[in-house]
């Protein structure tokens, strides 16, 4: 049974255009989904719909079989949520924030709380407003995971954090994955984090799911051919390569993104162009993101 499903989610934005225009995908238990998209692509909106904070104007979301729009309480109790611009009550002490969450979540695991608190090395008596950005986010993570949720919704959880805190964040999530097979849906602009964590990538673009595939498949199915400019190579010729989805000119060569693996790409390019000195490389997710979403309006 899917832990989380979105069925033709439609959500209009204030200014009239659709943020989400029929988003459709399911998440199975134990999956780690990297939700990618440019700023304003609707990642936050989608996550908040799953949390029941925003209501879809068309379609329905389902979390553990519960519709978050009709029973947000039940969803919130079973889900952990961290977001970049989440505000912890800054007038409270860490202690008090923990007491608040302990009371709100009946399944709160005191052992895990203690464990994480000592790992993050946060003073329990400190006021939230005295904490650094990284520490505050760690408290937020603690609050999101200490009730051992079966689903974690992370909205740009590492946004604005230094690499050390980001890694700590990653490791805590991995620990949860190991311990309980938690399902995770997270959005991030740190592509290396996504490459480490995600099993599957969902890319949103202009309100729709543009890509929904296993990360490994994505990486194995796309490649970039570097074509030297000499020998009359033009962008048009590059574009006519089989499976070519994007072409870019870069100092001295033309880069063509092909929808095929590295070996296939190399052979196809050699065959099509008849030039031998062609290189074909795998594409980091970051490049793929830029190639797939960067050029589009």
């Amino acid at each position: 049974m899917s832990v989380l499903s979105f069925e033709r989610i439609v959500r209009y934005f204030r200014h009239g255009h659709n943020v989400l225009d029929g988003v459709d995908f399911e998440v199975d238990a134990g999956e780690v989904i990297g939700l990618l998209g440019r700023n304003g692509a609707g990642k936050t909106t989608l996550i908040q719909i799953a949390l029941g904070v925003l209501h879809p104007q068309g379609g329905a979301a389902s979390v553990f079989g519960i519709n978050p729009a009709t029973d947000p309480m039940a969803v919130k109790l079973q889900v952990g949520y961290v977001s970049e611009d989440q505000i912890l009550p800054e007038f409270l002490e860490v202690n008090e924030v923990l007491a608040l969450h302990r009371g709100l979540f009946p399944d709160w695991d005191v052992e895990l709380e203690k464990d994480l608190l000592s790992r993050f090395n946060i003073r329990a008596g400190a006021k939230i407003k005295e904490l650094s950005k990284g520490e505050a986010r760690q408290v937020a993570l603690l609050c999101a995971v200490a009730h051992r949720p079966k689903l974690l919704l992370l909205d740009e959880p590492a946004g604005g954090l230094d690499p050390a805190v980001r890694r700590e964040f990653l490791e805590t999530s991995i620990q949860l994955l190991n311990d309980a097979g938690t399902t995770i849906l997270f959005s991030s602009h740190h592509m290396t984090d996504v490459e480490r964590m995600a099993g599957r990538i969902v890319m949103l673009h202009s309100g729709k799911v543009l890509v929904d595939d296993a990360l490994d498949n994505l990486q194995e199915r796309f490649s970039m051919v570097l074509l030297p400019l000499d020998g009359g190579m033009t962008e048009e010729r590059a574009r006519s390569l089989p499976g070519c989805i994007a072409v870019r000119r870069r100092n001295g060569s033309i880069h063509a993104i092909l929808r095929m693996s590295r070996e296939e790409g190399l052979q196809a390019a050699r065959k099509a162009i008849g030039v031998e000195n062609i290189r074909c490389e795998t594409i980091p997710l970051e490049e793929m993101f830029i190639e797939l979403l960067g050029g589009q309006p």
């Binding site: 008090e96 924030v97 009371g103």
Partner: peptide, 21 residues
């Protein structure tokens, strides 16, 4: 911070948070 800070109970924290926000 004093280690033995008076701990607020859940209800107190909840209502204090609601009041402040």
């Amino acid at each position: 911070a004093p280690e033995t800070a008076p701990q607020l109970t859940f209800r107190q924290v909840l209502h204090w948070t609601l009041f402040r926000t």
